[in-house]
């Protein structure tokens, strides 16, 4: 199981695959994600991500990937 430590996650959204349904934005417990100007999902508060996996499991288009930050990578 992935550790749920805040600030250790890298959230990647592939905009071409995102259809902007907003499920991830609605149910993200830490409000990491928001709609961008094009109506698609964008990562705005990555440091708050606790890697719960909800967005990844519920993205119907497989457009979000959450990984652990590589060692040495610091919170930006």
């Amino acid at each position: 199981m992935v550790k749920k430590n805040k600030g250790n996650s890298r959230v990647t959204v592939y905009p071409d695959w995102c259809k902007g349904c907003g499920i991830c934005i609605e149910f993200c417990p830490k409000k990491v994600l928001e709609f961008d100007a094009h109506g698609k999902c964008s990562v705005v508060r990555e440091d708050d991500c606790i890697h719960c996996g909800f967005c990844e499991l519920h993205c119907p288009d497989f457009a979000i990937v959450v990984t652990e930050k590589k060692s040495g990578e610091t919170a930006s």
């Binding site: 695959w17 259809k19 119907p60 288009d61 497989f62 457009a63």
Partner: peptide
């Protein structure tokens, strides 16, 4: 983990995103 696993099982010669509507549960 997660969607990286899924990406390995998708057909790479198919066009994505798939045809289903935004928010359709079928993708899940």
């Amino acid at each position: 983990t997660g969607n990286e696993i899924i990406h390995q099982y998708l057909r790479h010669n198919k066009k994505f995103p798939h045809v289903l509507c935004p928010g359709c549960g079928h993708g899940i």
